[in-house]
Nucleic acid binder design. Structure first.
Lengths: 356, 356
DNA sequence: ATGAAAGCGCTAACAT
DNA sequence: ATGTTAGCGCTTTCAT
């Protein structure tokens, strides 16, 4: 039993009794083929189950219908959804996607970035692990790169992100309006640019609310300890605002373990609105990011760059929505244990969120 | 400004002052290269930022270091985690992965399956959309295929799945032991084999518990209506057992909207244990599937097949764990609204789950 | 140990 | 409208 190779264009040509060039022309929809020949080729293709070898095709034509996608972590629902949307859009435009995950590790990201070049993609969409992404991008990489979601330290890239600062500021203002006096702001790392932007958005927005920040890392037991100690300390903050989904999960679980319940003992809000935040009772006030929009815009931009439109790097900031739910309510009528309620959504208008 | 091409092996050879064959030998670690030449090549590679063209390499060597992965839906956390694990394992073995999502659509799956062949992957790992997967697999596909998670109607495939029937039966027994009299079993489609297996596991396990089943589809408003009507009807079942994650989300939300709370008004259990099920109060009793193990075993098996080990198709069933939490408790001390508690885990022993 | 040359499957340029 | 041929970047004989 020898290894059966996939049928080649030559076999199709032989079977149809035509030349390989004709087969290629039929497959690529070139006009200069007689209907008769086209049919014979299509028959042969079907009978053999022939599928073009995309690698050989690219090699010869020098045009790649392939885009690379690099995300920090596929198991993060935000990124999974981003990739899923991208994948669909790409296929509609006839592109394939090579998707790789850096598993939140800059070194792994650098490895993936190097490796993905061997595919000779026409372009790359990257959600970088952290701000120092530019140093990891292999020199002499000629294909266009569009960054999404996270902002690099160095400018000069096409970028599709959200208005982190404004949205975080809106949450801070909401907390202030609810009468909270002080707020502990928790995030993975301030070295991740949008976490930093969110924190700065909070600081820029508050008037009376006292704020302090705590970094707890990603999957870092020490960071988890720091948070737990802070929440067990005698100076319990009036509210907790968590700046990323991973940290929100951890914070919510930690609160539960300690026996703290929102909003009874402490206000609780989160950047990144995940499904479970509507399911717990009361629901959790959160910033909802337009992930699908980000994917759409990133893809559209990359496609333009691939098609050759040059020009200065584009930066676009998409608006988030704010979901006000029970976890930040100081009105007495909202009780813990009650069924989750609808809540209230507000969006940015003319550069300002108008909550409350 | 013309389009700058990636450096080729020829450019490296010129720069190092050697032949392309020598460059190739250095890159592929062939022993027959003098240290002197090897160094010169490595320098040239670094200076040019050369990365091998994996397509051209495969074309000539006829060996593909590429595996394809097809999943029904990347946004399902189970599948995302499956892919993420696979991706890591594959890279360790020097393989790249082409990942595609069928978006729960058999036609899209068929399209992806056809398309992925043009990459000439060395093998495929597929979580099929539904049981009739075999009909969608293009004829004459010679690379090995390993199925995971969902079971095809036709046998003859390598398969790594979980013990759906036993685990679902254990939940049913648990409900019975808790004193529930009847249970509504909800799933997307019984045509999805593991949903069917779970339902059959329930039926096979119950002695006194009255059971009925309801199919609600995937993202199907009509199905959602059916469920809501059933839960608003006068004959509210004693317990609800939902057989897949998507349906669990819907069911839990629907319950909340109606004002039903578990376990106060109705018992609630789920196949697929997601993070939020520990976060809501009380926690939700659920079957936890060994996703990472499934990915590991699927990859190991595929690698064996790629390396050439023939033999009859292998089927392996992995054991699930049962997480007993407050949502199925009939003891009065567990109250809704209380902080989520640790709960209790039990695993399969000698072919039987021993819950309660 | 090194290089020259053939050829993988395909498309593009050219010839008919 | 169709066929012939060269060559994309690489690995693999096969000489040397």
């Amino acid at each position: 039993m020898s290894k059966p190779r996939s049928p080649s264009i030559k076999m199709v040509a032989d079977r149809a009794g035509v030349s390989v060039a004709t087969v290629s022309n039929v497959l690529n929809g070139k006009p200069s083929v007689s209907p008769d020949f086209a049919l014979r080729v299509q028959d042969a293709v079907r009978e053999l189950g022939y599928v073009v070898d995309i690698g050989a095709s690219r090699l010869r034509s020098q045009k790649s219908q392939l885009a690379g996608v690099v995300v920090p972590d596929l198991t993060n629902p935000m990124f999974a959804s981003f990739v899923s949307t991208l994948e669909h859009l790409a296929r509609v435009d006839g592109f394939d996607l090579v998707v790789v995950s850096a598993r939140n590790n800059p070194e792994e990201e650098a490895d993936r970035l190097r490796n993905i070049r061997s595919w000779r993609p026409a372009g790359l969409i990257v959600i970088p692990c952290d701000g120092s992404f530019a140093e990891r991008l292999p020199g002499g990489f000629s294909a266009p790169v569009v960054l999404a979601d996270r902002i690099p330290d160095k400018p000069g890239f096409d970028l599709i992100a959200v208005d982190n600062s404004a949205a975080a500021g809106a949450i801070a203002t909401h907390l202030e309006n609810q009468g909270y006096k002080d707020c502990l702001v928790v995030g993975s790392w301030l070295s991740i640019s949008n976490v930093r932007e969110r924190w700065e958005g909070v600081r820029g927005a508050v008037k009376r609310l006292g704020v302090e920040v705590l970094e707890i890392g990603i999957d870092d037991p020490e960071g988890a300890d720091r948070l737990e100690r802070r929440l067990r300390g005698r100076q319990l903050p009036g509210a907790l605002f968590v700046l990323d989904h991973g940290s929100s999960l951890l914070a919510y679980r930690t609160m539960a373990e300690i026996g703290l319940s929102a909003p009874r003992d402490i206000g609780f809000a989160s950047f990144d609105d995940m499904e479970w935040m509507r399911l717990v009772a009361p629901g959790i006030t959160a910033v909802r990011q337009p992930v699908e929009d980000m994917a759409e815009q990133a893809w559209a931009l990359l496609l333009r760059r691939i098609r050759g439109s040059a020009g200065d790097p584009v930066t676009r900031r998409l608006r988030c929505a704010i979901e006000i739910r029970g976890s930040t309510s100081r009105s007495p009528h909202q009780e813990a244990g009650e069924a989750p309620k609808g809540g209230m959504t507000c969006t940015l208008q003319e550069g300002r969120y108008s909550p409350d």
